[in-house]
Nucleic acid binder design. Structure first.
Lengths: 227, 227
DNA sequence: CCGCATCCTCATGGATACTG
DNA sequence: CAGTATCCATGAGGATGCGG
């Protein structure tokens, strides 16, 4: 009696022999994919995760990290007296589906940032995803300064990649608020508009070459959600 | 009495200015992506959905369909005295992220079908996703008979596509239980093994050309989940 | 501080019954 | 057939405590 069982957290499964369903059994829980997004640029500590993911309950974060670890997509690292959480190679493989899902949902950003929170590191996932089609003749490296942080966007034959650089600075740097950067990448605002409005500064030629393929999504929601 | 309110379903949002987070606000709820998966091959009726998604509660299905409709990814169609649910173009755009997620989770199928349910129509999503890399010299059309249903897999310069055919039959047809089809596509079983085991019949040459790129995932879970 | 564990409350999910 | 209504179980959100 007492406790029926205290192991085997039933872990609500769809019980379907389908790769998608089984994937969702693993990463379908609330917050899980957002935790992965946080960890894609690199390992983080518990409290960093907690503050970056505004609104997540502390017990939820702990529980998610635990099951993600036991599912093999996250691992704890005890390095230099600091405990960090990092993605396993298997977990990093989620980058592709997440970029695809982000591309799909990009039109939802058209309503602009409202009360929503924002973290610069999210751009390191978003920018390469949105510029996936872009190809430039020669490798381009571009600095983006937003929210007081400098990140680097590089496009070469391997496609676009972005990361937060701690060392030296790239040649061309442009600065803008997150909204403008996202609007540029999603094609909701043209480079000319942004430059004219003074919301952007930097070498126009480089900017144009990078954001040329302002990918207007093939299909977008006709009605604004939550009517 | 009365109802307190029937509008404004707060609809728990992450409140983040991020394409991924906003996407999850729309399709992150339980069952939602699986409903999309059902509808990708074509419109379905309420009860068809209900039986195909074994285990979903009827009120949940109704509520999901309602919010999916108001979010613009599903639409009701009243055709020929039968009410069906269909994806909007915007909703069909989910095919890409879902295929990517399915590819990522394909290794999870290695444990085989247990008590899990299975629907042949799920293969119309899975097969093209798993064979995405495959390229054959000339267009190939292959019939796959499983669970008493015939579906067609075609690979041409546009890549692989699969659908359930109601009309004529393709030249080459092979038959197998779902497990074997999936194991072939994921590369967990070689064509030779399957043929030798008699779990498969059909023209070996065609089969080989199609399943040649038995895409072994770059990274897989090292430990079996739910230790 | 950092990394959680506990406790409580309420929104969501799930199973079943019932109805136009 | 296509849902609505109801009731119970579970998971999420928020505050707080607490050992290292």
């Amino acid at each position: 009696m007492e406790k029926v069982n205290q192991q085997s957290k039933k872990s609500r499964t769809y019980g379907q022999f389908c790769a998608l369903a089984r994937s969702l059994d693993v990463v379908g829980d609330r917050w899980t994919l957002l935790i992965v997004r946080e960890l894609l640029p690199g390992p983080m500590r518990y409290t960093e995760l907690k503050t970056s993911l505004a609104g997540i309950a502390t017990n939820l974060l702990a529980e998610r990290l635990r099951t993600m670890e036991s599912n093999g997509i996250v691992e704890r690292r005890l390095e230099a007296s600091s405990l960090t959480y990092a993605l396993t190679p298997w977990g990093m493989g989620l980058r592709e589906p997440m970029e695809a899902l982000g591309r799909w949902g990009a039109p939802l950003l058209a309503t602009g940032r409202g009360e929503d929170t924002f973290q610069p590191r999210w751009l390191t996932l978003a920018l390469p995803a949105l510029l996936a089609g872009a190809s430039v003749p020669s490798p381009v490296e571009l600095g983006i300064e937003t929210d007081g942080l400098l990140m680097v966007l590089r496009i070469d034959e391997d496609g676009p990649r972005a990361f937060i650089r701690r060392g030296e600075e790239p040649e061309t740097v442009f600065a803008a608020v997150p909204d403008v950067v996202v609007a540029l990448a999603t094609g909701h605002v043209s480079i000319e508009e942004a430059l004219a409005a003074g919301e952007l500064r930097g070498d126009p030629d480089v900017l144009r070459s990078v954001f040329a393929a302002g990918r207007a999504s093939a299909s977008a929601p006709k009605t604004t959600p939550s009517a």
